[in-house]
């Protein structure tokens, strides 16, 4: 369970201060997939970075299963599986070594790591690449390895920043299936995306973000109803007030 209350963050740039996240509040429940939907530059990545303790909020609060990242960063990191926008692998290590490295950093013993690697490899369909070096992996193979690495410690909460970015249709389909499995296991899944169809196909709840603010929230049906638009795409455009940034 992830709760976000009035989160705010700004950055100093050459031209002055830019408020990237401006009072964002939402809640992502266990056993649900929650989508942060918004155009590029809306503040999705910054919001997620504050959730996984990479950045400190200027004001507002975050609670991960009731724990505050500001007070207990290590406890929060243990409860989170994170697939950041930056998901580089160690090219000279095999997929298995990449995953095991993070397992050890999470304090897992070797037997437990083996067990988790086997399960994740089955679930993600990456058995045959486990012992290949990451150098020369396709985008899909890289993403699968990065996801397995993020989930090696069996976290209750899963954060994914643009998880299907750059993936082909088949890989995207299998990834969606995997995320639904995580939901079925009762985990809290929070993903960000600028692709409306992606969010519509996958998420139980949608939080629409534009210019650092939450402009709409609800189930896909509720969003359509509230804006009076027949398609979710039109509902989305109406919610953020323009269609800029949607053509990715």
């Amino acid at each position: 369970m992830i709760e976000v209350i009035e989160l705010r963050k700004s950055f100093a740039t050459r031209t002055g201060r830019v408020t990237a996240v401006d009072g964002v509040s939402f809640r992502a429940a266990d056993g649900e997939i929650t989508g942060l939907l918004g155009p590029n530059g809306a503040g999705k990545t910054t919001t997620l970075r504050m959730l996984y303790t990479l950045m400190q909020p200027e004001s507002g609060r975050v609670l991960i299963d009731g724990h505050d990242p500001a007070a207990r960063p290590d406890e929060v990191r243990r409860r989170l599986g994170v697939l950041p926008d930056a998901r580089g692998l160690y090219k000279r290590l095999t997929a298995r070594e990449n995953i095991a490295y993070f397992g050890r950093l999470h304090g897992l013993d070797p037997a437990r790591i083996d067990e988790r690697v086997a399960r994740l490899a089955d679930a993600l369909g990456m058995r045959e690449i486990l012992d290949r070096r990451a150098e020369g992996f396709s985008q899909g193979e890289r993403t699968k390895t990065a996801i397995a690495r993020a989930l090696v410690h069996d976290p209750r909460n899963v954060l994914l920043d643009e998880p299907t970015n750059g993936l082909d249709v088949m890989t995207t389909r299998s990834l969606r299936g995997f995320l639904r499995e995580l939901r079925a296991e009762g985990r809290c899944v929070l993903l960000s995306s600028h692709v409306m169809q992606e969010v519509a196909a996958l998420c139980d709840r949608i939080v629409v973000i534009a210019r650092g603010r939450v402009v709409a929230r609800g189930t896909p049906d509720e969003l359509r109803e509230r804006t009076g638009e027949a398609s979710l795409e039109d509902a989305f455009v109406r919610a953020i007030g323009s269609d800029e940034g949607l053509l990715a």
Partner: peptide, 16 residues
């Protein structure tokens, strides 16, 4: 590590 974009996931682990 930063150029290869592997630092951010690393810093999201409990390792200090």
């Amino acid at each position: 590590e930063r150029e290869r974009q592997s630092l951010e996931p690393l810093l999201a682990t409990p390792a200090s």
